[in-house]
Design a protein around this nucleic acid. Structure first.
Lengths: 341, 341
DNA sequence: GATTCTTCCGGAACCGGTTCCATCCCAAGC
DNA sequence: GCTTGGGATGGAACCGGTTCCGGAAGAATC
């Protein structure tokens, strides 16, 4: 394996100059730099990241902590992060941590504590106090995308506003019996994503002088099958049926549309459905939704990390660090005015 | 930051002994080892991976190359790999490479060529000749899961057998008009996954003295929306309608079931549907499918890599390296005998 | 023309581990 | 009692870069 000493010898310069020519920012004559570069490519020299990081303390590597890979939103964020990091010359080390337990502790205590990553991006994970503390103590920048826990840099959409926006869209169409397919633990955990969306929904209803009908708020996993099951339960019960349904995710909304089709309920004729996410399948199903852009959110998280690492261009406009990430209502064919009568 | 010298001093031994006590396999007195370990934990010593890998040449890090994160199969494999690597003390560095282009070249030429990963796992990627050569030249073990290209270690299911198995299930139920929703380029690329499944389907039909009806083989992306669109096209055309449909993936199969529902075609009464994958949603839709176990496949790939790195237990039974990965038929409620008449 | 500044470059220390080699000591074998 | 052997340990080299420091040469200033 070719080392930088070989390059230097071939180019007739010292190791120091070779290093400066190849990576350092020091003053090197243009001609010398060319000679060194030629020598390097001639013998196929590739710098050792380990040696460099040993002395600089930086690894050009960012750890990404994610609770689950195989959910559309997370996968999309992950792809966005990967692309952005790669084009900045950074590697991405993936840590898939689930519920609290020994495996999760091991990631925080051992893997992330080592000097192998320069920074950490945590996506949708609720950091326990000691986990955040551990990371802070290691001195590595930490950027959170969603999730909860006390950290300095957090990017998130305004989930309360999302709930309000979706509900107001339905209210604006004239609906009054609006049901909600909420995420798990929406009622029990007020600060969580499902909790905030539920609160936004309730607040919008209240502003219109309304309240949800009995059994018109159902909690389910944010997946299509769970959405389908939840909707079957919600739409199948006796009593006045809702004319509109706000689902906490697009997957749930699609599941609900499938449930409606199964029950012979026309969408949007007899039931309007709105979701949240901007899922890639939403368009095919004609689903009205409050879009967020997970891939773009991943890119923004990388931007934030790079800035914290001092790599950001000075020209970069500082993002309004407090402001929530953008969302937007996309109206398709799954929502319309309620049936007359 | 505490270094190993600090630990050694505190324990009253030399750096060499401290290193041996903490990681090396050399002879260390039990009492000394205890003293060193106590000293290490007292000052919160954490070894620097960079320093260790600089001298040992090993990084305890595996690169994973994947064409797309956000597809159920790949996400599942990725999670399986992550879990297995983590429990073996390895890190996972993710490279999401798409079509051939400068970004992809950069991954192979720059990122993977550096001494940052000990081995590479490529999932479902067709390695170009120069890409495989580059990896081979770097001397790093390479394990492929699916995909094509000349490499030494490849794990894959037998896609031809999958196509045959699915088709024979339908034939066994008495179907004769069996359509196929194939993956993209199934006809154009005989060696590919979609191509092999198509061939298995055709061979099974031929063995029964049958051939696909006109327009009864349709190619589509292996997603739910594409499967829906393809099925609408396939089922909507004039002429005798197929009584059974073999879709090249579960997502496509689910899309097809939605299409059938939309067209008022009963499943399985008027149309039997079978897919491939064992998707997490298959059960909810009652979908009969040829299951493969992507998470388990990821674990097996890690096993293979670890063995190549010399970490495998000698006791480990060598897997029949040539044998295809297991698949199995799971019969649910989406397939039945064809309608009479 | 002498002084100062700037640019370019080489020598050498250093990052933090691992490992080779030499040494020491104690127990076993003759 | 002396040699032999092997386990335990320390000293020092080493991995492959980066960076500090100092020197040399040329440009700019007076």
């Amino acid at each position: 394996m070719a080392a930088i000493g070989d390059v230097a010898r071939l180019a007739g310069v010292s190791k120091a100059t070779a290093s400066r020519a190849l990576s350092g920012g020091g003053h090197v004559a243009a001609d010398t730099r060319r000679r060194v570069e030629a020598a390097a490519s001639e013998i196929g020299y590739i710098a050792s990241p380990a040696a460099a990081s040993l002395v600089t303390g930086r690894t050009k590597n960012v750890g990404v902590v994610i609770p689950i890979v195989n959910r559309w939103f997370f996968g999309e964020v992950l792809e966005g992060i990967e692309r952005a990091l790669l084009s900045a010359g950074y590697d991405l080390t993936l840590y898939n941590v689930g519920e609290h337990g020994p495996a999760r502790d091991r990631v925080f205590e051992f893997f992330l504590a080592r000097k192998r990553v320069d920074a950490v991006i945590a996506i949708g994970v609720d950091l326990a106090e000691h986990e955040a503390a551990r990371l802070a103590q290691s001195g590595k920048p930490l950027v959170c995308l969603g999730g909860r826990g006390a950290v300095d840099a957090r990017l998130a959409i305004d989930d309360h506003a999302v709930g309000t926006l979706a509900t107001e869209h339905l209210l604006g169409l004239g609906h009054t019996r609006i049901a909600h397919l909420a995420g798990l633990d929406a009622v029990a955990e007020p600060g969580s994503v499902p909790g905030e969306r539920l609160r936004g929904y309730l607040d919008a209803l209240a502003s219109a002088g309304l309240a949800p009908g009995e059994g018109h708020v159902v909690e389910a996993d944010t997946t299509m099958p769970a959405g389908c099951t939840g909707a079957l339960q919600l739409l199948g019960r006796p009593g006045p049926r809702p004319t509109a349904l706000f689902a906490a995710s697009d997957e749930m909304a699609i599941g609900a549309m499938i449930a409606a089709e199964r029950l012979g309920i026309a969408v949007p004729g007899e039931l309007s459905v709105i979701g949240v996410d901007g899922h890639e399948y939403a368009e095919m199903f004609g689903l009205t939704t409050v879009e967020q852009a997970p891939g773009e959110q991943g890119r923004l998280a990388v931007d934030a990390v790079l800035r914290l690492l001092g790599e950001g261009e000075v020209a970069d406009p500082l993002p309004d660090s407090g402001a929530p990430l953008p969302t937007r209502l996309v109206v398709r064919s799954s929502t319309t005015a309620p049936p007359r009568g």
